[in-house]
């Protein structure tokens, strides 16, 4: 009995001291999409500064809820909150990293990047109005490709996801039919197609099904070498998804610190912009200046030397101009 007591006491002391030592712990929760890059940054940051950063990837909805209830030091969301809502819940918001959505297809005799689509044809495919790959709307913009008369299988995300939110936001923005019939959101009622769970579900499905088309996170498409396609952007050019086209979108996107960076990065105006990009955001509680300063210190460090790490993990770092805007925003709010 005594030995047990001693062991318990020793363990309690150990727990106590480890806590005392790691006085600085930052807790964050939210979006699943940036989880790999945040945790990679946190690992390096911990080695240098000793600050422990825990990030729970529970989903954007959960992240917003937790920071609103002030149970974490920062929240993370894949889609921006409107300035009115930030005002109401007394939150601050800034972008941390750029990501995007890439349509992928599985077509015989078509190599990655060969197939081109414009917003109208993409929208009509997902609405179920274009049913076959040799539809005049598709062949018109792909004169060099031999597309067979095969039925298109649409694959979408069956689970609620920021990926779907960005994708449907883009379709709603570029296609009035989509806006009125389906709308945008993390989960929408897709008129046709089959659902896969997660990026891996959609990717697995597109790979296995001949003549399928789906949409996945850029990093996922790149790492799994899926057959991406070219999209016509707002400037009228066909662009391939890649670091350059995402950076171009982020640079030309009109992020405004006065609106707490509220911006959907879809349909960016740049000549080489990938049209379906999006930033992922960090949310802070306005009144908690002390912990906010620590969170900001971390992201400032990550902005300075985390770019390569982010690129390794196929995330697009913020362009310099945007980083400067974010830093100015921190200063205005007294966090740096």
């Amino acid at each position: 009995m005594k030995t047990i007591l001693m062991v318990v006491l020793a363990m309690a002391l150990m727990v106590f001291f480890t806590h005392a030592e790691a006085a600085e712990t930052l807790n964050g929760a939210g979006a699943t999409f940036p989880y790999p890059v945040y945790s990679a940054w946190a690992f390096d940051y911990n080695k240098i500064t000793g600050v422990q950063l825990n990030y729970q990837s529970i989903g954007s909805g959960g992240g917003v809820r937790q920071i609103t209830e002030r149970t974490v030091h920062f929240g993370a969301s894949d889609d921006p909150l409107r300035p009115e809502q930030l005002q109401k819940d007394r939150l601050l918001q800034f972008p941390a990293v750029i990501g995007g959505v890439v349509p992928v297809a599985n077509l015989e005799n078509v190599k990655p990047g060969e197939l081109k689509l414009d917003p109208e044809s993409l929208c009509k495919i997902f609405l179920g109005e274009i049913k076959f790959w040799d539809d005049p709307k598709i062949t018109k913009i792909n004169p060099g490709l031999k597309l067979s008369h095969s039925e298109i299988t649409v694959v979408y995300r069956s689970d609620g996801a920021g990926t779907t939110a960005i994708f449907t936001h883009y379709l709603s923005e570029t296609c009035p039919d989509w806006k009125s019939r389906v709308g945008e959101g993390k989960a929408v009622k897709f008129p046709v197609g089959i659902g896969g769970k997660g990026n891996e579900g959609v990717a697995n499905y597109v790979k296995r099904t001949a003549n399928a088309i789906g949409y996945v996170e850029f990093a996922y498409a790149k790492q799994n070498k899926l057959d991406y396609l070219q999209l016509k952007n707002r400037a009228g050019n066909f662009v391939e998804p890649g670091f350059e086209s995402f950076e171009d979108a982020a640079e030309t996107g009109d992020f405004d610190a006065k609106k707490d960076f509220y911006l959907w990065l879809t349909n960016a105006p740049g000549k080489g912009s990938w049209p379906i990009a999006g930033a992922t955001f960090i949310l802070l509680a306005k009144e908690k200046t002390d912990s906010n300063k620590n969170v900001v210190k971390f992201f400032d460090w990550a902005f300075k030397i985390g770019d390569n790490k982010a690129k390794e993990l196929v995330y697009v770092p913020l362009p310099k101009s945007l980083k400067d805007k974010v830093r100015a925003y921190w200063k205005t709010n007294g966090l740096q």
Partner: peptide, 9 residues
């Protein structure tokens, strides 16, 4: 529930 709970906004 499993698919939609986490992101029900």
């Amino acid at each position: 529930l499993a698919n939609e709970f986490a992101e029900a906004d």
